[in-house]
Amino acid sequence: MFLREDGGLEGRHDVRTQARAGIAIRGLAKTFDVRPAPVKALDTIDMFVAEGEFLCIVGPSGCGKTTLLRILAGLETPSVGAIDISIKHEGRPLQSMVFQEQGVFPWLTTLDNAAFGMQARGVAKAERHAVARAMLAKLGLAGFERTYPRQLSGGMRQRVNLARAFANDPAILLMDEPLGALDEQTKMLVQDDLLKLWEETRKTVIFITHSLDEAVVLGDRVAVMSHRPGRIKALFDVRLPNALELRNNPDFIEVRRLVWESLREEVLAARGE
């Protein structure tokens, strides 16, 4: 059985929550105080992400996916609820975020961009440069260390973004549509890069995307969010073998279809508002 759907969170998950390390999101809600009326972005999110899991989140635009990720990244505070993280991270940062392509600093060279997280933590220059250089080489950016981002293509800039997060070596990676702006071919190549890196490091990843293919290719599980205010509508286990060959697997199509059925209702509902 490669697929299991469970609607939201039942007791089963709570049992796992106690037993395993991971990220437990409990009763999380977020309301923005804006004029003319407050906007409720997230409504009672309950979810458990196990350590080492690759979770993809899809949902209609404006459903609060990014807000959820920003709360996890410490860039926003929740209005209600709590996040308990029981993943051990001695000697390394707890989480780093992979931003969209524009998040690369134009005034730093590729090398300094990749080493940025370590620099902020006060890692010595020689060491952080060595780590960043190795990570850039893994992502096919050897030889571009001294180049500024504007001289790079979009795909290369996005790999700089990945290198910056991976070189920081956090326990959790949070990714906000990091490949959204790339063309289809580049996107597939960077997805492969990302999977290879993840298989080496087995970090806990929460990955937001609006691409169903991407979610099914990359994720161990795919969470579908409802239209605003965002809730976790359904969770799909994607137990497909050999992620790198996945796109040619017939089961891939089937999973994709099921996720789309669930998501479609929400997209239509969001449009109807």
Binding site: A73, G74, L75, P93, Q95, F99, G103, F105, F116, G117
Partner: peptide
């Protein structure tokens, strides 16, 4: 200044 730059810096612990 693009708000994303400040977000990046804050997220990486500046």
């Amino acid at each position: 200044v693009e708000p994303i730059y400040r977000d990046v810096a804050r997220n990486f612990g500046v």
